[in-house]
Design a protein around this nucleic acid. Structure first.
Lengths: 338, 338
DNA sequence: GGACCCATTGTTAACGTTCACAGTCTTCCC
DNA sequence: GGGAAGACTGTGAACGTTAACAATGGGTCC
């Protein structure tokens, strides 16, 4: 304990005594019940102020069965994307009067997600947002139905949970079509890890755009989102003939690609055009400034809370919505005509 | 509500009935009280398993007055530093069996911090970590003593709250001494915003190193941590004569500086050496790879939880510790002999 | 064999709210 | 002036857990 508070915190009964009313009337004032005489209300309010009373939310939660706390499960909140999404979630949740309890997972094995959900459910959260970009996580989610409403962010077409996501396919298409429109014969791709839905979506968009233009799709190079993996892919690409346009699945890897090209004397955008994905704050100052696809993480966070609250507070049964946020194209200096 | 749960969750009394014991015995089993016959324990455990019972932590918190939840107040968790610190905090807290409730502030006016603390205190958190890198936040903290234990991260020498921080002065000194050791006449500095304690510390270290070497300190250039502000500082520096070494207060701004130099045809490290601060994952792949000062954010997070828990669980009165994590020097390719 | 200790279990009362219901006092209408 | 509707307030009982204390039983020690 170690608390050195002199006298104990006042409770509702203390306020009631001070104001000369019953504890229930104090409760009514606090909950803005309409049927309280305004004179009584001010008396209670004064008493509250005088005693420095603060309502005990734990006791309240016990009886109402609502903690006004939302849980967030996320994977590696150190990355820009997840961090921004969680930030958006937290802002929106607090604006709606909810607390946010966070669990950041190191790895995303099945048990990890399951444990995190149990953990949060134990705590009595009213709902959970799972930032589950990996297929494995998304599937786990579909299987287990905890007692509380759930929303998945970037969760694929998972069973009967609501999903909020950015249209990754459209993003991949935008990037690829931009490069093709500049006259490049075809577009190479450095993709993200295979169990990430976002990576899959971008690959799909890239393939679709190439197919639509009647171009052959080269074998994509594998990456793991890290600058280093991009660097390695970049070295491979630099050693290959006929590479004039590359769509890299995120900005961090794109940085690695740029670095590798620079080392190998490959000029961007003169010899090779590069497009990234995410639009992290640094991208604008890469050498050269990176043309990329912007994801509105803030909107994703906000929307996920909206969907979740609709599920928590709405009277209808869980509707299982699917909300897609469009990506946008950001032109900078890393692409040029073939 | 909208919950479609068929029958209500079992409570302790249900388990007790099922196992043929009193609810108190169930409680004892759950809390690993020693004086329970092992045969009784297994019977209770079986009943728990059979009914799928989960203990209600809200009710528990009401009577124990401990929620096993810690609050975190942070500013802009989108930035790498805060994000990593919060990540470390969350990991350490969960390992110790605590939940983490987060409040991310947009701005750090006095009221913002005050409200956040009140908000968390209302929720009944057992302790709070404030990632308060700005002087204003740190001061606010010193003023108000909420009922709960508090630890400040990067909080300066604020009054009677415990502080965990990285030795910024030492970091600034390391960077500057490295540049001086390469034979540079003096070292220029692009600093962070003036109300940030970290910015001040780095400036102080830089000045100290210059003074110790008997060199004059040029007027530092002002930045706001963003790549753009670094870019603008870089343009100024490029237009000035006699600039051969620059210590930039964070890696993001350093990126902007590198970009500006590149645009102006200033070669790094041939003409100018650059040192950053933070060691973000991207730094290794800048052009050129950035020599920088690494902060162990993870250690900061872990330590802050350790200090906080010692304050919460220890029996002694709040000791008001001050824990300093040393920075480390990371050599890469952005610096060279004068 | 009686006193005493300890392990084990049960009983009752908090914790601080909100909910359900029952009052009391106006006011208004016929 | 009687009754009913409505505004306002109070009383008692939950919510599901842990704390404090009491009770039981077996063993040990002289």
């Amino acid at each position: 304990m170690g608390s050195s508070q002199a006298r104990r915190m006042p409770v509702m009964a203390d306020v009631a005594r001070e104001a000369g009313v019953s504890h229930q009337t104090v409760s009514r004032v606090l909950n803005e019940h309409p049927n309280v005489r305004s004179e009584t209300r001010t008396r209670v309010l004064e008493a509250i102020d005088k005693l420095g009373y603060r309502r005990n939310l734990v006791a309240r939660a016990l009886v109402t069965k609502h903690s006004r706390t939302l849980g967030v499960v996320s994977f590696d909140t150190t990355l820009y994307g997840p961090a921004s999404t969680v930030y958006g979630i937290e802002q929106a949740a607090r604006a709606a009067g909810y607390f946010v309890s966070i669990v950041s997972l190191k790895s995303i094995d099945r048990t990890g997600v399951r444990d995190a959900l149990d953990y949060l459910a134990d705590q009595g959260v009213d709902g959970i947002v799972v930032v589950a970009p990996q297929r494995s996580a998304a599937q786990t989610l579909a299987d287990l139905a905890p007692g509380v409403p759930i929303v998945a962010v970037e969760g694929g077409e998972a069973g009967d949970v609501s999903v909020v996501c950015v249209d990754q396919v459209e993003g991949g298409r935008l990037a690829t079509e931009h490069l093709l429109s500049l006259g490049h014969e075809t577009v190479w791709h450095v993709r993200g890890p295979s169990d990430w839905l976002e990576a899959e979506g971008r690959v799909a968009g890239w393939r679709a755009a190439l197919a639509q233009a009647g171009r052959a799709a080269p074998e994509p190079l594998a990456g793991d989102w890290s600058p280093r993996s991009g660097y390695e892919a970049g070295r491979s690409l630099a050693s290959m003939a006929g590479v004039s346009a590359v769509f890299v699945a995120n900005d961090q890897m794109a940085l690695g690609v740029l670095r590798a090209f620079s080392e190998q004397g490959v000029k961007v955008p003169d010899q090779v055009s590069v497009v990234g994905f995410d639009d992290i704050p640094e991208s604008e100052f890469f050498s050269p400034p990176l043309t990329t696809i912007r994801q509105d993480f803030d909107a994703v966070g906000r929307n996920s809370i909206e969907v979740l609250l609709r599920q928590i507070e709405g009277e209808e049964p869980p509707a299982c919505e699917r909300l897609v946020v469009p990506p946008s194209f950001v032109a900078r200096a890393s692409t040029a005509r073939a």
